[in-house]
Design a protein around this nucleic acid. Sequence first.
DNA 1: CTGAAACCAGACCGAACTGGTCTCATTTTA
DNA 2: TAAAATGAGACCAGTTCGGTCTGGTTTCAG
Lengths: 149, 149
Amino acid sequence: MIRIGRLTDYGIIVMTHLAHDPGRVHNAHEVARAAHLKLPTVSKLLRILARTGLLTSHRGINGGYSLARPPQAISVAEVIRALEGPIGLTACTIDSPGECEFEPTCPVRGHWQKINRAIRDALDGVSIAQLAAPAPPAVAGDGLARVGV
Amino acid sequence: MIRIGRLTDYGIIVMTHLAHDPGRVHNAHEVARAAHLKLPTVSKLLRILARTGLLTSHRGINGGYSLARPPQAISVAEVIRALEGPIGLTACTIDSPGECEFEPTCPVRGHWQKINRAIRDALDGVSIAQLAAPAPPAVAGDGLARVGV
DNA sequence: CTGAAACCAGACCGAACTGGTCTCATTTTA
DNA sequence: TAAAATGAGACCAGTTCGGTCTGGTTTCAG
């Protein structure tokens, strides 16, 4: 299975929660409770997301975090990038010249770029506002195969 | 970074190599040499790919492996699925009911399906014949950002 | 008929990575 | 001034993955 870290998965859930009312500041306790996650974990997540610029932090006794931008303007891709770094399936498609020993001879390099591009587009096309939409589409019924690829 | 295993990466390179002349049988040594990979690793890969039905194995002294189908009919997604199992970004989008403790309350589940769908489509749309195409598109020039998402 | 070449299978180990926790410092406001 | 909240990074433990090794089986050439 193609994988994103569990932390990233959590991160998206957290962002989705915040997207429910973008104006308010939410503190870590509240988010942790809402997301059914442990406080230290959520704390770490929020910190990272704030450092990346997706959230704005407010310190002090009535502090917390709020979305730095309207939820329509934050894509799933951005959240993933914040928590996992550049999006790409293979090391060589990221920005790491020389990492792959036989980079010049590798016959599939160019093509990976295309594939990654498609994936990035898919991820870019979904905003967290959409994820937060009140009615998640029914799990079945859209004719997708449930399990296999 | 969203990740596929290194083995899977190798697997795609191997399949691409085989796709160069689909008729012939290639033995493990030859493939290993061509792909710049160690023999035991390639051996393992070929075995898995054969077991999954993507390759046909020929035993005996002049044996080896050949593509089970024409390369146009084998998608990248199939290779990934053979080596990694079902394609999905998160555990809950695979077929594992109950794995996620708060599955019923999870607000983003339905949406993930859509995202995964998009990724699967992207992967399904590329055949290994395309990967084996003689002229990999130049790395730059298609306006893609090189690194960031 | 015999031996070499190739595939078949699975066990196994070491290393890298990641998730998650903990501790301590800093900031702000009631 | 004390409490409540974020900020930062170290650190440990568990898991997963890559890669190797050993041994067995099949087929064909000489």
